[in-house]
Design a protein around this nucleic acid. Structure first.
Length: 475
RNA sequence: GCCCUCGUCGUCUAGCCCGGUCUAGGACACGUCGCUUUCACUGAUGUAACCGGGGUUCGAAUCCCCGCGAGGGCGCCA
């Protein structure tokens, strides 16, 4: 191993934390952890008009929530700070002066431009529609007189990038571009490269939407005489349906949402890994240590992936099930408290017992309040879909009414043999299977179509509650 | 318009680099069935894909070319 790996995540605080940003951060973080390198967080807040402290906080919180700790950056410091671009103007000016001095930059219209090296020629651009200029050699057959302008172009040496994900990519810039705006502020391309140089970043891992920009960045590195880092352009996350990449407005696009819906961060992280990368051993659900151990940039896919909310939910369910009962309870109890299902007066033992009972059937913490309310209250709702389902085979009220006398003979509902006998007797009397009582019974006592296994459910609710609810329901 | 990238079940993907073991495997979703004690659980099972056309080859999902499709970039936004 030559130089130690340094990766970075460089978000700009202009909106909430997007799922695509989260995955970009994740891959950078994973690679740093895999190689024993350093993960740097740098905030690209050069666009003052769009940045807010609130969004900055969202970035920090989301990264922490997903378990991505940064070795250098805001809050933790480091040798190459400051880590907020808004505080690095002296550095940018120094690099600008260097380019001005070595002739690779010049001033025009008050802005600073990078001078490309190569043969120069002029070309006419035509605009036929909305004023955007597209270079073309032949005129379109439009009735309207086109706008025209003459621009200077350059036949520059193309960059030949050996991208870790995509292999060799060739692309040439063909015109000088802006480094500093007329108002004196540096643009993204420039600060991004300068910071990567200053922070000694060895691997730039970012979305494919930057692939075409990379030729600009390489030109800046070369003009500055700095070594070019390794690049890995990862695929984009597309909308579940419809065209284009996922945007902030799409459902499920914001990390905040999963947090507020009580998704397990480990599950979200695990799912994000699966979008664009596959574990070698074929196992999808993996602890983070295994992912870190296996993660290689060259295994990242090159095709874009569509976001699938259902698979994400499934991952969450798998992670939920795999929690030991103590962990599950410590996460679930606050959710019940927040939903008002339990309060300080609720005996801790009751809560623990219900959670232990329910964990094997639980699909999400989000659904847990509705899934457990009937344990703690007589005021539980009856699910209409479940009612329709239960009513298909037989009238649930009649079934429950038929069951009551048999259950009354059972003294203790924890006595499974007696409970079984009661079901058998009821079945014999009604001319149906013992299990035919289950669905109506469950619906009567819980208002739901599913829940814990029948024996433990009856035992947990107890004889009095079960019979009272049955009587009320069948009346 | 120009440039870059990508193209295996509805979705995420394995296989592709090093052609035959692929009548293309897994997962999610969906359908069916079982568990003579049910269900959002669990087990089994089914439907379903190599974008199209040429070429190379005894043989192509795998290599080459051309189409087509998808995504991205082309800002004094980041």
């Amino acid at each position: 191993m030559s130089t130690p790996v340094r990766t970075r995540f460089a978000p700009s605080p202009t909106g909430f934390f997007h799922i695509g940003s989260a995955r970009t951060a994740l891959f950078s973080w994973l690679y740093a952890r895999h190689t024993g390198g350093t993960f740097v967080l740098r905030i690209e807040d050069t666009d003052k008009a769009r940045n807010t402290d609130e969004f900055l906080q969202v970035i920090y919180d989301s990264l922490k929530w997903l378990g991505m700790d940064w070795d250098e950056g805001p809050e933790v410091g480091g040798d190459y700070g400051p880590y907020l671009q808004s505080e690095r103007n002296d550095i940018y000016n120094r690099y600008r002066d260097r380019l001005l001095a070595n002739g690779r930059a010049y001033e025009k219209d008050g802005a600073i431009w990078l001078r490309l090296e190569g043969e120069r020629y002029t070309e006419t651009e035509y605009s036929y529609n909305n004023g955007e200029f597209w270079t073309t050699t032949k005129k379109a057959d439009s009735a309207v007189e086109p706008l025209t302008r003459t621009i200077e172009k350059v036949r520059a040496e193309p960059m030949r990038l050996n991208d870790q994900v995509r292999g060799y990519v060739e692309r040439a810039e063909d015109r000088d571009f802006i480094l500093f705006r007329a108002n004196g502020e540096p643009v993204f391309h420039f600060v991004n490269v300068v910071d990567d140089i200053e922070m000694k970043i060895t691997h730039v891992i970012r979305g494919e939407d930057h692939l075409s920009n990379t030729s600009k960045h390489v030109e800046i590195f070369k003009a500055l005489g700095a070594p070019i880092p390794h690049y890995a352009h990862i695929p984009l996350i597309l909308k579940t349906d419809g065209p284009g990449k996922m945007s902030k407005r799409d459902r499920g696009a914001l990390i905040e949402e999963y947090r507020s819906r009580h998704y397990l961060p480990a599950a979200v992280r695990n799912y994000l890994c699966l979008l664009g990368w596959t574990p070698k051993d074929g196992k999808e659900m993996l602890p983070i240590a295994d992912i870190i151990a296996q993660f290689e940039l060259t295994d990242i896919h090159s095709a874009n992936a569509r976001f699938d909310e259902k698979k994400m939910a499934h991952m969450n369910q798998l992670h939920l099930r795999s929690l030991n009962p103590e962990s599950f309870a410590s996460l679930a109890a606050p959710v019940l408290g927040e939903a008002g299902i339990v309060d300080e007066a609720t005996p801790e033992d009751d809560i623990q017992r219900v959670l232990a009972l329910v964990q094997p059937k639980c699909v999400s913490l989000e659904s847990l309040p509705g899934f457990t309310k009937y344990f703690f209250s007589e005021d539980y709702a009856f699910d209409e879909a479940a009612r329709a389902n239960v009513s298909k085979k037989a009238d649930p009220k009649a079934r429950c009414a038929a069951l009551i006398p048999h259950l009354e003979t059972v003294a203790d509902f924890a006595d499974t043999a007696s409970v079984d006998a009661a079901f058998a007797a009821a079945g014999a009397a009604a001319g149906c299977k013992a299990t035919d009582f289950f669905a109506p019974l469950r619906f009567a006592v819980s208002g739901l179509g599913s829940g814990p296994d029948m024996h433990p459910l009856l035992a947990a609710l107890g004889r009095d509650k079960v019979l009272a609810r049955l009587r009320r329901f069948s009346a």
